[in-house]
Structure formats: structure tokens, C-alpha cells
């Protein structure tokens, strides 16, 4: 555990909690892509199946349970509790165009051709692009609530910090996982455009709105 890994995990946790609190406090999931949240629930489910087979640490196990629990709570709030506020008309990204090719890729490029390893690989690939329905929704409506942009910022920051963590681990532990690194780079790149808008607009007190 190094500082980048820890702050990465905390940033990830912050993002998840910010989103849950936003929905809970405003009693609304307007502007949130339910499709992205379903993909994240799928990511955590397929990645953390090793909860059933191996124990790494109390930290590891509790964080996995928190992530999975929060992901399903978010999906429940969007599709059940606050369904009336869900903006499905703007959440039109075709997720099958992500899930199907990524499923195929996970079969072809993995560390080990075993069910758990293939599902883990699938989750890594899927996570890298799971935010696309959300970004697509924002580009469609042309705007995002400020609290939603904080969510996206912490969610993007998390994988960027993991990249630092992997550089650290490569130098100091010789640890190297090509699948995670490539997917992590892709994932971080997808947020770059958003990071730019966040710094130039949101941090200066303006609402994030895209030019028409």
C-alpha cells in the first residue's frame, strides 16, 4: 500500500458517496446515467467474485463490500426509489456496443483462461469505458449539475492515482499488470476532456455547460 493507492481508493470511495448523497439529499437522480451505474455494478460484481475464494486483508474485503453495496444502492435509487426523476430519455447510450466486444476481448486477452480470471479481466476492461453513457448523456443535454461534476472528478482522479500507484509499484516492487495498466490509461484518457472543463469552469464557480 502506497500513498497513491490509498488516495486512489479514497477518491473512488468519495465519488461513490458523493453520488449517493446527491441522489438521497435532492431526492432526485436527474442528470445521472442509470446505464453507467448498472455497468459499474456489473464491474464490481464480476471483479470481486474472489471474495468467495480468497481473503487478502480486512481493508480489501470491507472496501469490496462497500463498493458493491453502494453500486447496487445507487442502481436501486435510480430505477426504483427515485425512478420518477430518472431522465431515461437522455440516457440513450447503447451499452451492448460496449459489453459485447469487451466480453469477447476478455476471452481473448487475459492472464489465465479460467472463469474467475476472465470475469476479472472483463471487469477491468468494462470499468475503463463504463462512464461513457454518463459522458454521452452530458454531451446530449449540454450541461451537468455541479455536484455531478464533483462525482466525475473524483471518479476520474481515482484511476489517475492508480496509474501513479502502478508506476510506484513497478519501480519499488517490480509489480506489473499490463491488462490493468492499459485499461487504466484508457480510462484516465476518457476523463481528460472533462478534467479540463472541471478546472476551467467548475472550480471557477461556473456551472458546467457545453457550447450548443
Amino acid at each position: 500500500m502506497n500513498i497513491f493507492r490509498l488516495t486512489g481508493d479514497l477518491s473512488h470511495l468519495a465519488a461513490i458517496i458523493i453520488l449517493l448523497l446527491k441522489i438521497w439529499k435532492t431526492r432526485s437522480c436527474a442528470g445521472i446515467s442509470g446505464k453507467s451505474q448498472i455497468l459499474f455494478a456489473l464491474v464490481f460484481t464480476t471483479r470481486y467474485l474472489d471474495l468467495l475464494t480468497s481473503f487478502i486483508s480486512l481493508y480489501n474485503t470491507s472496501m469490496k463490500f462497500i463498493y458493491i453495496g453502494c453500486a447496487y444502492a445507487t442502481v436501486y435509487m435510480i430505477y426504483a426509489k427515485f425512478k420518477a426523476t430518472y431522465d431515461g430519455n437522455h440516457d440513450t447510450f447503447r451499452v451492448e456496443f460496449l459489453v459485447v466486444p469487451i466480453g469477447g476481448l476478455a476471452f481473448l486477452v487475459n492472464h489465465d483462461f479460467s472463469p474467475l480470471e476472465i470475469l476479472w479481466t472483463f471487469s477491468i476492461y468494462l470499468e475503463s469505458v463504463a462512464i461513457l453513457p454518463q459522458l454521452f448523456m452530458i454531451s446530449k443535454t449540454g450541461e451537468a449539475e455541479t455536484i455531478t461534476t464533483h462525482y466525475l472528478f473524483f471518479l476520474g482522479l481515482y484511476r489517475a492515482l492508480y496509474l501513479m500507484n502502478w508506476i510506484w509499484r513497478f519501480y519499488f516492487e517490480g509489480f506489473f499488470d499490463m491488462i490493468a495498466i492499459v485499461a487504466g490509461v484508457v480510462q484516465t484518457i476518457l476523463y481528460c476532456d472533462f478534467f479540463y472543463l472541471y478546472v476551467t469552469k467548475v472550480l471557477k464557480g461556473k456551472k458546467l455547460s457545453l457550447p450548443a
Binding site: D9, I56, K64, Y67, H111
Partner: peptide, 10 residues
């Protein structure tokens, strides 16, 4: 060489 990685990361 076993390439499988210990999943200590989240």
C-alpha cells in the same frame, strides 16, 4: 511462469 496476478488492488 504463472502470470496470474494477486488481486490485492480494488
Amino acid at each position: 511462469e504463472d502470470e496470474a496476478v494477486a488481486k490485492d488492488e480494488l
